[in-house]
Design a protein around this nucleic acid. Structure first.
Length: 293
DNA sequence: AAGCGAACCTGGCTGC
DNA sequence: TGCAGCCAGGTTCGCT
């Protein structure tokens, strides 16, 4: 699923329903997702107020009034749905349009404003954890994580530093979350095409001749920023059934230049090449060998 | 130590 | 129609 733009889209969808609200009831329907839930998961959440919702790379972070942070990762197929309650029934229960027990609905958050937020994840590669807010950066999930690609730190010079002496293909280096955290398969393919750089090129070549490659490294930094920003503005990409928290679809997938476009003509003006699919470290790469060098 | 491939899990699509 | 095989937005583990 979800790379940085999709996670940011989810964060924005959850914010109005959860920010400053107390968690009234948390329903945990299985003992684990990718990892076991932390001990006393629901008890540590119920009654707490969500102070803020933020994002680090592909992780959602909810700061709680208890001093703990709820860290959530969507894996490949994780989704949140937000429903606002209709009127309260005579029994004091909130009324919702749906029954809310679809297959793979693993966690349900009931907020004091009546919002019901459901986490659904068929493949269960996602997970949730609770860590002290004060030591978030040192937590096992965030320790060693690379820089935020939309932060100010990312520029050509930093890319040259990070990739210096790396023999791994450029594609793999961009997917390495210890270097830059938040890029995934789609947006790496897109940024490389916009930069005219081959995914097969050794990452270290961007730094091997600093003067000559300075422009290319700077261009790559700029296109990473550009493609992520455009995707966030479009509400992320909706592949197959991935949807926003209100059920609507992102539309950045219509603006893919190479991802999932094997056999199509390269969209670069004046390029006569064809998009091809290759496999790198077990994952599909889409690129044009004519204009990506 | 870096750099691969496999594993985790379910569902949807393709082709025989 | 049925079913086997392949593929999927991510991360982690284990082997060279």
């Amino acid at each position: 699923m979800p790379e940085l733009p999709e996670v940011e889209t989810v964060r924005r969808g959850l914010e109005p329903a959860m920010a400053r609200q107390r968690l009234i009831k948390v329903e945990q329907r299985r003992k684990d997702l990718r990892f076991p839930f932390p001990p006393h998961f629901t008890e540590r959440l119920e009654g707490q107020r969500v102070m803020s919702l933020s994002r680090r790379a592909k992780y959602l972070v909810l700061d709680l009034s208890s001093g703990e942070a709820l860290i959530m990762h969507l894996g490949m197929s994780g989704r949140f749905t937000v429903e606002m309650a209709g009127e309260k029934s005579p029994l004091g229960e909130f009324h919702y349009e749906t029954a809310g027990k679809a297959p793979h609905d693993h966690v349900v958050f009931q907020m004091e404003n009546g919002a019901r937020i459901t986490y659904n994840d068929p493949r269960r590669f996602g997970f949730m954890d609770l860590v002290p807010s004060a030591s978030l950066a040192q937590s096992k999930h965030f320790k060693g994580m690379g820089i935020e690609p939309l932060g100010n730190a990312l520029d050509g010079e930093l890319i040259q530093t990070l990739f210096a002496d790396k023999k791994t293909p450029l594609k793999a280096a961009l997917l390495d979350q210890r270097l830059i955290a938040g890029l995934g398969n789609i947006y790496v393919c897109e940024a490389l095409h916009r930069s005219g750089l081959s995914p097969k090129r050794r990452a270290g070549t961007l730094a091997s001749n600093r003067g000559a490659m300075r422009g290319k490294a700077a261009l790559l930094a700029a296109t990473i920023r550009e493609v992520l920003t455009e995707a966030v503005q479009a509400g992320g990409s909706s592949l197959r059934d991935y949807a926003q928290t209100d059920g609507s679809l992102g539309y950045f997938q219509h603006r893919f230049r190479v991802y999932d476009r094997e056999g199509e003509k390269c969209p670069t003006p004046s390029c006569t090449g064809m998009i091809q699919r290759i496999v790198q470290s077990g994952r599909s790469t889409f690129y044009c060998k004519t204009c990506q060098k």
